[in-house]
Simulated assay, not measured.
Amino acid sequence: MLAYVIGVVLFALAICVSVALHEAGHMVTARMFGMRVRRYFVGFGPTVFSFRRGETEYGLKAIPLGGFCDIAGMTALDEVTAEEAPRAMWRFKAWKRTVVMSAGSITHFLLGFIVLFAMAATMGLPNVDQKPIVSTISDCVRGGTTVDQVNNPVCQPGDPAPAKKAGLLPGDVVVSVAGKPTPTWNEMVTQVKAVSGPVPVVVERGGKQQTFVVDVPKVTRPAANGGTESVGAVGVGVAKTIHYSVLGAFGGATSFTGDMFARTWDGLMAFPKRIPAVFNSIFGAERDPNTPVSVVGASRLGGEAVEAGLWQVFLLLLASLNFFIGVFNLLPLLPMDGGHIAIVWYERVRDWLRSLRGKPAGGPVDYTKLSAITMVLVVIGGGVTLLTVTADIVNPIRLQ
């Protein structure tokens, strides 16, 4: 129980740090370009303490959830003092404002990548794509009518050991079996089941492809329909984790980051249709593990991961959450940073088109006219947050 509590606290603290660094990203880039940064605070609510360094006030609020960075003149409609006016944010070029407003999300992306790089260089990254990487070589393959008989590690005289005898080694990546490509482990298994006798197996080892002739035996195995079937077997196990050298960790983390971006985007696109399942789970329906979770749910999962000693899962959750927050924050909707970026470039393109027609630049977008839409989005966001928090309390997703 203590390990679970520690895990929950650690995960919640990591989220708070991530969001605080998000705001720090805005602050650092704004100051880099010369914009006036009034305040940078971690947390919300009453001020615990603050201090001023130069023109910026730094401080800590009583509720350590998130934070904020107050940049003078974010829009032309914001009030600024005479001293602040020359360095108001809206006066700077569109690309500079874009960098500042996207810096928060970029910070989340960097944090996610750093977590993945650290994993790749130490504990490895999960083989989520089921790449046909060999982790174990069995001393023999056995037939049987039950799973227990098949998995019995005690070899009997005469039991074949095809992979071991052919010279396959842990770490080999199976490229093809009998001339047919095997991009995934399941495709490799399917192909092996269908062959027998001497079969050429191409593997990648040390960056080079090598061909081995594996004498594939036919063995009796339990079938999916409850009976038995005769299938080919070679005696290899799949690698659940891909390990890298320190140098290779960068490439591994980069590739995995790309995969996580794709999954994050797919998750965002599927987000609306999964909300009804979250609602139903509050009233007793089984919780779909693919439904959205709140910070509460993510922290609970982090606690369970620590309790079970699954630090790889803990870190993957943390990286995933950073990628999700980063992508979500860039959606072109107010009040998120992506909405402000969209307006900046709307004004830029509009003024360019006006210049082509010999017209002067138009005025700044009146944010007050968008307040109704913004309020609707805020209410929807608040409702979804309340819904997921409730579901994560009464019917949480669990690791097991």
Rank of each mutant, 00 (worst) to 15 (best):
A82H: 09
G143C: 08
A72P: 04
V189A: 10
L111Q: 11
G227W: 05
A12L: 15
D159P: 04
N152Q: 11
F261Q: 03
R274V: 08
G237A: 14
P132G: 08
P170C: 08
I343L: 15
V389N: 00
G362H: 13
V219G: 01
M27R: 14
G338A: 07
A120G: 10
V28S: 13
M375R: 01
I106Y: 00
D172G: 09
V28W: 15
M89R: 13
E304C: 07
G197L: 01
F117I: 08
A361G: 14
R36F: 13
I373F: 14
N322H: 11
R221Q: 10
C155T: 06
A161D: 02
I71D: 05
T98A: 12
K164W: 04
N395C: 01
F250C: 02
M89T: 10
E23P: 05
S230W: 00
S299C: 10
T368P: 00
A62I: 09
N151F: 11
P396H: 07
G382T: 01
F250Y: 09
Q312N: 14
A233H: 01
N280S: 13
R36M: 13
G297M: 06
L10P: 01
G235D: 03
V150S: 09
T254A: 14
V327P: 09
G339C: 06
H26Y: 15
G252P: 09
E55T: 11
M123G: 11
R97V: 04
I373R: 00
P364F: 14
K165Y: 01
G158F: 08
G43Y: 00
L169W: 07
V216Q: 02
L399K: 08
S196L: 00
I15R: 02
V293N: 09
N395P: 03
S135M: 14
T182W: 14
P289A: 11
E204L: 06
M188I: 07
H243D: 05
I325F: 03
W311E: 07
F33N: 12
M375H: 00
L168A: 04
A178K: 14
F113Y: 13
A166T: 03
D259V: 01
S294E: 11
K208C: 02
T220E: 14
S105T: 04
T56F: 07
P183N: 12
A94P: 08
N290V: 04
P183T: 12
G235T: 02
V378G: 01
A30K: 15
P126L: 11
F271D: 02
N329D: 07
Q312F: 00
Y367G: 08
M74V: 11
G362E: 15
